[in-house]
């Protein structure tokens, strides 16, 4: 509670600012409507009017919450959780691509880190490009990745989306693992040398376990990056399912509520994913006796 209090307070303030913004930004439209209908609005009536528009410039928080509930919980209760209009369905599509991309990115990151740790050529050739790769705005490449994967004969959109998300999430894993694999001290490595341990032994018995805290720290960053990658992959590419596609479609059909609901669904998904990784981290590190 001690820690949560300031966070809750700040959240309350942000919500209040949001309401204020909704009131200000939706006022012109409400006034225009009232004028057309020939009615005079009192200040109180005007405020209520700004809070319940169907296509507000800025929807009020409770409208977003209602829309979110309508497209998730309510549909689930009616047994239509995986209908194409439900955010659970779109969230699952996004989640699938995110996890595929995450798995791919993590595998790449770990392999790259092992290569860089053990091979000087790999370190010298790859490391600069790995850094450069993160400075390139991947969105520019996103449409091309889809064109290319279609040309190679990959059906569907999961793979190209996963490639973009792997591109974004491999880097933190690579950097974290390089750090982790090099984290044993010289004396720890020397100790293994006095046992005449093989490279294999020193990897599995020392370097790999020592790198676990680093790995999990970067996995938390990576899973969030993977989700960003998937949504970035859905935005510009004319996808029709997935949370990013809901944002796109909401934009095309002029339904701001759908955009906001999808945005919040994405935020919730990100929160859940990071929490899950955090839980696994706590569990594994505790098992390994490394919990702090």
């Amino acid at each position: 509670m001690h820690r949560a209090l300031p966070v809750l307070a700040v959240l309350a303030v942000l919500t209040a600012i949001w309401y204020l913004g909704a009131w200000r930004m939706n006022t012109p439209w409400a006034l225009a409507q009232a004028e057309r209908a020939g009615v005079e609005l009192s200040a109180g009536e005007l405020f209520t009017e700004t809070m319940r528009q169907e296509r507000p410039r800025l929807p009020a928080p409770h409208q977003v919450a209602a829309e979110l509930w309508k497209t998730t919980g309510e549909m689930a209760l009616r047994g239509r959780a995986f209908s194409k209009r439900s955010l659970i369905y779109h969230g699952a599509i996004t989640l699938g691509a995110t996890l595929t991309g995450f798995a791919l990115g993590v595998a790449l990151g770990i392999l790259g880190a092992v290569a860089i740790t053990y091979s000087r050529v790999a370190e010298m050739s790859l490391m600069p490009w790995a850094i450069v790769s993160q400075t390139i705005p991947i969105v520019a490449l996103a449409p091309m990745i889809i064109v290319l994967s279609n040309a190679v004969g990959i059906e569907g959109r999961t793979v190209p989306k996963a490639i973009i998300s792997a591109y974004l999430c491999y880097f933190p894993v690579l950097v974290g693992m390089v750090k982790g694999l090099n984290s044993p001290s010289a004396s720890q490595l020397d100790l293994l040398k006095t046992y005449n341990a093989s490279g294999r032994d020193s990897f599995f018995k020392l370097r790999l376990p020592a790198s676990m805290p680093y790995l999990f720290t970067s996995l938390k960053v990576a899973i969030a990056a993977a989700l960003v990658g998937t949504i970035v992959g859905e935005l510009p590419t004319g996808a029709i399912s997935g949370l990013g596609a809901r944002i796109l479609i909401g934009d095309q059909f002029g339904t701001p509520l759908a955009i906001w609901a999808a945005l919040f669904a994405a935020a919730i998904l990100a929160g859940v994913l990071v929490t899950v990784i955090g839980g696994v981290q706590a569990l594994v590190l505790k098992r390994m006796g490394m919990a702090r």
């Binding site: 809750l8 934009d251 994405a266 990100a270």
Partner: peptide
């Protein structure tokens, strides 16, 4: 203390979605 965790969380979100 209130803003740091929120900022950390928001920084990890796909904010690019607000573009439209």
């Amino acid at each position: 203390a209130g803003l740091l965790p929120i900022g950390n969380f928001v920084a990890a979100l796909p904010i690019v979605g607000i573009a439209p």
